[in-house]
Design a protein around this nucleic acid. Structure first.
Lengths: 236, 236
DNA sequence: ACCTGAACACCGTTCAAGT
DNA sequence: ACCTGAACACCGTTCAAGT
């Protein structure tokens, strides 16, 4: 009984930066980066381009805002009942991001570019903080904070992007199973001399579970963190 | 005394897929992704768009080809005198990629998108193979091959992209030192309650050396690999 | 202060026509 | 087989004008 499907946005309701961002996210979710166009955006909001440019500087800023909005929702900075261990907390942050990218495939590319383009924005610090606090809580000595947190964040972004984009709708309409199967088969047909390893591992690619692998990778990096920076205090 | 600057390509020399890709890379290097346009490409090669479309299906394929070309040069599959240890070899592959992205900043985004868009291409297998062989040589048991190699590759792509794009010419004309300084300062001015960790680590961000950090991260992930998958045979 | 919508410069791509 | 170049559909953005 809520505002029924509103394809072209209930006439009035006043334009606002928030509504624009919201509509942009819907378009991105539906048709990827190519789906976000000022023409369809103005149609959806039933305005003209000028109205949007009043609230938003340009398309880049709109994409940044959409990214920040989604990341903020996926990675809460103040975890509610923090009865979880640092390790569990890190997995939670990572999974939050993983799932966000899974639900919004355009996020992967966006994160890759935006993170480096404008690290003054709120998204890099948010992710960094979410992971870093737990690295600190883990008892890693201060000298290892930056390296450890960076390694975790880089792994998470790389893996989440990779897996998730493969996942839901890299190209809308491709089934995950078929996709992995096709890649796996392609790997098996590589030159045996040049690609002995990749061929050997094609089967593991076909059978692997994204989420499981992703978390296994986190555990692996965490093992590296504690191996190289043995916790000084804390014992769990 | 070589072919002097050839701004608009010595008239003849016949068009070919290779020459097109070569020119595309030059444009990408000079002005980033926005610099590669069919108008300027045709001008540079002194032809019409139709000629290019004869050799290349579309812009996407051109970008993919440019990426493959650069990666192939940066990550040789058959390392010459392999007197190096697996660990050194992995660092070499990673540094190759790191440097490639440093010299061709557009590569970062391209790798992030292409790796997931078309893993049947030659670039994913190449990187995977380069790292994976050494994971195998390290004595990691077969059950750990896929997870370990994935973790390394994800870290490498994430970190290399991140660092390198920050590095040379994220936006042409921004000095690396000033850039890091600005970000570091921005981090120091974050809310002390919400961002205690990020603030604490701002100094380490300012002072860190890209390459050093990058390699430290690799060592960290490698430590995780050997911690979780203790080598069964091999002893170095 | 906020919105309209025609207009501008530019883009990737196509295709009939040439050689 | 390979190339030419005008034309098409579409894009982000601007801006004088309205309220």
């Amino acid at each position: 009984m809520t505002t029924r499907t509103r394809r072209s946005s209930r006439r009035s309701e006043a334009l606002s930066r928030e509504r624009i961002i919201e509509a942009a996210i819907e378009l991105l979710d539906a048709d990827g980066e190519a789906g976000l166009t000022f023409r369809v955006l103005t149609a959806r909001l039933s305005t003209g381009p000028g109205a949007i440019y009043w609230h938003v500087a340009n398309k880049g800023e709109l994409l940044d805002a959409a990214t920040e909005s989604v990341v903020a929702a996926a990675v809460p900075l103040d975890p509610a009942g923090s009865a979880r261990s640092p390790r569990e907390e890190i997995r939670a942050v990572a999974l939050g991001l993983f799932e966000a990218i899974d639900g919004h495939p355009w996020l992967a590319t966006q994160l890759a570019t935006q993170l480096s383009r404008s690290p003054w924005g709120s998204v890099t610090p948010r992710i960094f903080e979410g992971i870093g606090r737990q690295v600190r809580a883990l008892g890693v000595p201060e000298s290892g904070w930056f390296t450890s947190t960076s390694a975790l964040v880089h792994y998470i972004l790389g893996a989440a992007g990779q897996n998730a984009v493969n996942g839901r709708t890299a190209q809308p309409g491709v089934d995950r199973g078929e996709f992995l199967d096709a890649v796996s088969t392609a790997w098996e047909e590589l030159d045996p001399d040049d690609y002995s390893f990749t061929r050997a591992v094609a089967g593991q690619l076909r059978d692997h579970d994204d989420r499981e692998q992703f978390l296994a990778g986190i555990d692996l990096v965490l093992a590296g963190v504690t191996a190289i920076h043995p916790p000084d205090g804390q014992r769990r």
